[in-house]
Write a protein that binds this DNA or RNA. Structure first.
Length: 804
DNA sequence: CTTGACCGGGG
DNA sequence: GTGTACGGTCAAG
């Protein structure tokens, strides 16, 4: 039988000491296909000692017998000699294939003990990944499968693989059935579960609610049954949500167990399993893609977001332009307790899956593209960090180029790398604090990637012996050989050029069309990867670690930005600010002469590097440090449309009360509108309102999450003290509770006066003035000569008589 | 300045 | 699972 389908998930099972790879795939018609592959074997490489030759080593390995520690034989199925590239050298290695994947690390340590063996390589690459890389059978690409068919429960087709062919026609965007969900939990019980998909919205509720999207179920057990049915009935390929790994699936597992049920969500009815990986556990559903958006956002998306908190509402606000209409958990609890406003409760429940669904519309295609580029399953691609995504891309590309991957550093080696100390980063120009007008911002397009290409910076071109053309860095005693393009520059150039082509194509198709979305996601994934190489080279857990390469990259980056500043000065422009890859130039003229400036800079840059115009801002505000100098990385800009861009101010952090954050934001806006007097008035008014004592406590709440039972904390901090006091009143305060507290009036330390908001009868106006509102606002207004005392009205600042 | 504890998202 | 992987902030030392 022959079928065309796209792989969406892979794993393996061991049956009678034989390994079977299971490829879960979808046909274009939406049918489910299971492919068994029994001919692909796990393997690793042994590198002979220098004086040994690989052929003799192979013979010696074949003569020997190996055993596990428990005495069981470790069978070698076959050995092969392979020519591989190690750095820039060609070496001959022995490829050793085993019966089952877990034998690889065991056999590797036995082989490593042989005196003829220098070391082993590629012994820790997960088996499914090895298969995808070696066959270049990347997830979600269209593949023709050929084999003998067999019956398998839960699948439309199942076949034992004989042959596969990667099909050229991969341009269509695959169509997957997607479903977002979200649980509402009160007192450790699931009371509602919402679902959202195209033309589908539903809330399962354990109480009667009169809304047409609500399906009332008799109890939690029935809710869980319906959950399983809905995933099954809708033939879900992509199950998504927000923080579903750490919360929803954790709850689901407990509650399903409580009711003596099974969380059989796999395509074949297999149970959900947590895949532990370091700090995180991913909830894995065999044959479906469970893509939790939170890890992807926190690892990959957040560097490009302005929002400092990554809660669903903030992220949706920034990415989707949705209004933030958060209801507090306490509010929801109260509605539930009092059984009031349940219609609204249900709408909120639904809103969370809807937001997750809409985010997934943009993010799932990106995750899928990253999975294709890196050869990881979408499940992994959405949970790995930048460094790990990069490394998997490198592993896949290394295989294509017959390059032997370096080993991962040992714990000791990591520590050694970590202790080497930091190297210098980007150049930051010290701004003059205060208000600046008419600012043009320029930045380098992908500065670090293009620097690496321009100077052939790569781990294996570093200090290459027998080199004709050396790029030497004055500051350091190392060089990069320019004779042949290195591994990293080659990959970067490939990604960047492919991205340009895609962007050209993107402008030719209709915005918002499926084709547009596909191209957009692909170029976005390429951008993510291209920008990750520099950080990867300096990441102490990297296989291709090269501190020198990272150092040289930032060094050259500094040089280019400094040269740019010099050019600007020569052309008579005033520099306002600059950070790593950007320069801010001031003055009327620059707006008209910006193209001359760009032309001059770009004509002096190496090919591939480019300075671009980023935007024009009517005003910019720069704050100052303690010593009165202009502060770096803390500024706010406003454009002609009144849009603010705030960098570095901590006004969105949740451990600040909203009164402090809101006031700071208003002050920044007034300052940017050149209305400092009004800014001062806002602060004074806020202080007055605080002093009057009748501000709602909601404006004064500070949030912090408890991570363990309050009694286990060694140190005292306000949120812990507040939690302890709530417990004394009989509250059940468990770990993972977000404590919202208010500092109340009275004597003693700040911590001793912290009370959870619901128990706080008063607030300490002085605390909020001195520790919250003033520090946030003084950060801005000190630049204009204001002190805390003046803002409090104690000073002689005039013109605002009624506040004195 | 360095070191160690804490925290994130979710309800 | 061919396992055991974060990164930033802040108070204390």
């Amino acid at each position: 039988m022959e079928l065309q389908a796209r792989i969406i998930d892979v794993d393996y099972v061991v049956e009678d000491n034989e390994v079977v790879l299971r490829l879960f795939a979808k046909t274009e018609q939406g049918e489910n296909l299971l492919v068994h592959e029994k001919n692909f074997l796990p393997y690793f490489y042994a590198v002979p000692e220098e004086e040994e030759d690989a052929e003799t080593l192979e013979e010696k390995i074949n003569e020997k017998e190996f055993h596990r520690d428990d005495g069981e034989p470790l069978e070698i199925v076959e050995t092969d000699l392979k020519e591989k590239i190690d750095g820039t050298e060609e070496i001959e290695v022995v490829k050793i294939s085993t019966k089952v994947p877990p034998d690889v690390p065991k056999l590797k340590s036995k082989i490593y003990d042989m005196p003829e063996v220098s070391h082993c390589r590629e012994y820790d690459i997960p088996f499914y990944k090895r298969f995808l890389i070696d066959k270049q059978a990347l997830p979600t690409e269209k593949i023709r499968f050929e084999g003998e068919n067999f019956e398998a429960e839960g699948f439309d087709y199942a076949l034992e693989l004989e042959d596969l062919e990667i099909l050229e026609n991969n341009e269509e965007k695959p169509d997957f059935e997607k479903l977002a969900f979200d649980l509402e939990v009160i007192d450790d019980e699931i009371i509602m579960c919402s679902f959202y998909s195209e033309n589908f919205e539903k809330v399962l509720s354990t109480v009667e609610i009169d809304e047409d999207f609500v399906e009332t179920v008799e109890d939690e057990k029935r809710l869980l049954e319906r959950f399983l049915e809905i995933v099954e009935e809708r033939n879900v390929d992509v199950l998504t949500g927000y923080n579903t790994d750490e919360f929803d699936f954790d709850v689901l597992r407990d509650r399903v167990q409580h009711h003596g049920m099974e969380l059989s969500l796999g395509r074949n009815g297999e149970r959900m399993k947590f895949n532990r990986r370091g700090r995180f556990a991913g909830a894995r559903l065999k044959g479906r893609m469970h893509l939790d958006l939170y890890p992807f956002i926190s690892h990959v998306v957040s560097p490009g977001l302005e929002s400092e908190t990554l809660d669903l509402d903030s992220v949706a606000e920034e990415m989707l332009g949705r209004n933030k209409d958060d209801v507090s958990f306490e509010q929801m609890e109260e509605w539930w307790r009092e059984k009031e406003n349940l219609e609204e409760f249900a709408r909120y429940a639904l809103k969370d899956s809807e937001l997750a669904y809409e985010l997934s519309d943009e993010l799932v295609p990106q995750i899928i593209e990253l999975s294709r580029i890196t050869g990881l399953t979408p499940f992994d691609a959405c949970r790995l960090t930048y460094g790990q995504l990069t490394e998997n891309f490198l592993l896949k590309e290394a295989f294509r180029e017959n390059i032997l991957a370096p080993n991962r550093p040992t714990r000791n080696e990591r520590r050694r790398r970590g202790n080497q100390g930091a190297y210098e980063g980007g150049f930051v120009y010290t701004p003059e604090s205060g208000l600046h007008e008419d600012i043009c911002v320029f930045d380098f397009r992908s500065l670090y990637p293009t620097v690496m290409v321009a100077h052939n910076i790569s781990p294996e071109t570093l200090n290459l012996e027998s080199c004709d053309d050396k790029f030497e860095l004055e500051e350091f005693d190392f060089y990069f050989c320019q004779d042949e393009q290195g591994f990293f520059p080659e990959l970067i150039e490939g990604l960047v050029e492919s991205r340009y082509r895609l962007k050209d194509e993107m402008y030719e198709v209709e915005e918002g069309s499926r084709e547009y979305e596909r191209i957009y996601s692909r170029q976005q994934a390429q951008k993510i990867l291209a920008n990750s190489f520099y950080g990867y080279l300096g990441y102490d857990g990297a296989r291709w670690y090269s501190k020198e390469s990272a150092q040289a990259t930032t060094y050259m980056g500094r040089k280019y930005i400094e040269d740019t500043i010099e050019t600007a000065e020569e052309m008579g422009f005033e520099i306002t600010y600059g950070d790593t890859d950007s320069v801010f130039l001031k003055g009327d003229e620059i707006k008209e002469r910006k193209d001359d400036f760009l032309d001059k800079v770009n004509s002096e840059l190496p090919e591939f590097m480019e300075l671009e115009f980023e935007g024009y801002f009517t005003r910019g505000f720069f704050t100052s440090t303690e010593s009165g100098q202009g502060a770096k990385k803390k500024y706010a800009l406003i454009d002609e449309d009144g849009e603010m861009k705030i960098t570095g101010f901590e006004q969105v952090r949740r451990d600040w009360s909203s009164i402090a954050k809101d006031t700071q934001k208003q002050v920044l806006r007034k300052v940017l509108e050149n209305k400092v007097d009004e800014a001062v008035e806002i602060v004074k008014y806020t202080i007055e309102r605080l002093q009057s004592g009748d501000l709602p406590l909601d404006d004064l709440k500070i949030y912090t999450t408890l991570t363990k039972p309050p009694e286990e904390y060694g140190s005292t901090s306000p949120h812990v003290e507040a939690a302890k006091k709530a417990m004394d009143r009989g509250d059940d305060v468990s770990p993972e509770t977000t404590i919202d507290y208010v500092i109340t009036r009275g004597g003693g330390s700040i911590s001793s006066r912290a009370e959870m908001t619901k128990y706080a009868g008063s607030y300490d106006a002085d605390y909020y003035i001195d520790n919250q509102v003033l520090p946030a606002c003084i950060r801005v207004l000190k630049v204009f000569g204001y002190t805390g005392d003046q803002l409090k009205g104690k000073g002689k600042q005039s013109g605002l008589g009624r506040f004195q």
